[in-house]
Design a protein around this nucleic acid. Sequence first.
DNA 1: TAAGTATCTCATATTACGTCA
DNA 2: GTTGACGTAATATGAGATACT
Length: 320
Amino acid sequence: MMGKDDLGLSLSLSSSSHHHQHLPLQLNLMPSSSASGPPPSSPFPCQQTTQWAGLLADSDKRPALEVCGGAVDARSLPLLRGIDVNRAPSSGAAERDSEEDAGVSSPNSTLSSVSGKRAERDTHLGDEHDPDRACSRGISDEEDGDASRKKLRLSKDQSAILEESFKEHNTLNPQQKLALAKQLNLRPRQVEVWFQNRRARTKLKQTEVDCEYLRRCCETLTEENRRLQKEVQELRALKLSPQFYMHMTPPTTLTMCPSCERVSNSTTSTTTTTSTSSPLTNAPAQPMPEHHQFLHRRTIPGPWAPIPLRPFLDAPPQRS
DNA sequence: TAAGTATCTCATATTACGTCA
DNA sequence: GTTGACGTAATATGAGATACT
């Protein structure tokens, strides 16, 4: 049967990769071949991401492309009530955005870690608490009165470029974020949010795939268990038949050696003890090791107790 | 050097908006 | 025109890491 390693089943509860990113509970259910790929310290590696990105591309790309299609945009643009996320932030505001957003990268943060120096950050810490927050809500200078956030659709091209970038690396450093934002005419905060949501969607998809894989494994094991139970019933039925006892050998007790864990038949002569293959491994019987002969000759009372096997297993009936 | 603080970035949950049937 | 489902951009929150005092 499949073991844990066969399934490639591993749980990574917590670890740290190079970007000190949090590593979520990761089910690596890929076959053992893939288990050798991503290092355990990186349960969300680019390799795996790329692998899943390809798998997910179909599922994720569909809504993105359909929703963000030109026709949809053409219809939706009038509904944006004058807000066009795809348009470069206008002139002065755009420049201010691109510069301020270079420092505004997180809702909890006010300035970027491009420099990472607090002194420099402090100089940028103005009276405005979080300018990007207001911008990201789509509240323009003229729409300050509307407190509700505006949801802004990304264009097809923007989504495609973001997807391509995500395939290369599912996390962005500040420089990459800035460059991507500039390329897409988006605020860095928007790029950051997009990547966060994209990672969440990827993980969700993978979780669904993992669940499906586990479900199939469970079905397989259930079927295997059912088959074995049936086999046990058949063997028990054979045991109860009179013919069974006629050909039955004397009671047998198998003993396991503690050192090599081989099973020997204690009913036979100690000098002629046969080495029995493991029922699990089905390994071919091998000659008795030297230490076996020593142990069996001296009948040392050891901790390895005889293993009483079920009668029907001690003397398996002859199958014709 | 250790402790405390500030900041950044992340994952995660949730909200709210846009689209479509 | 309305409505519910769905996708997703945006927000809120907490945690870990890092730099600094």
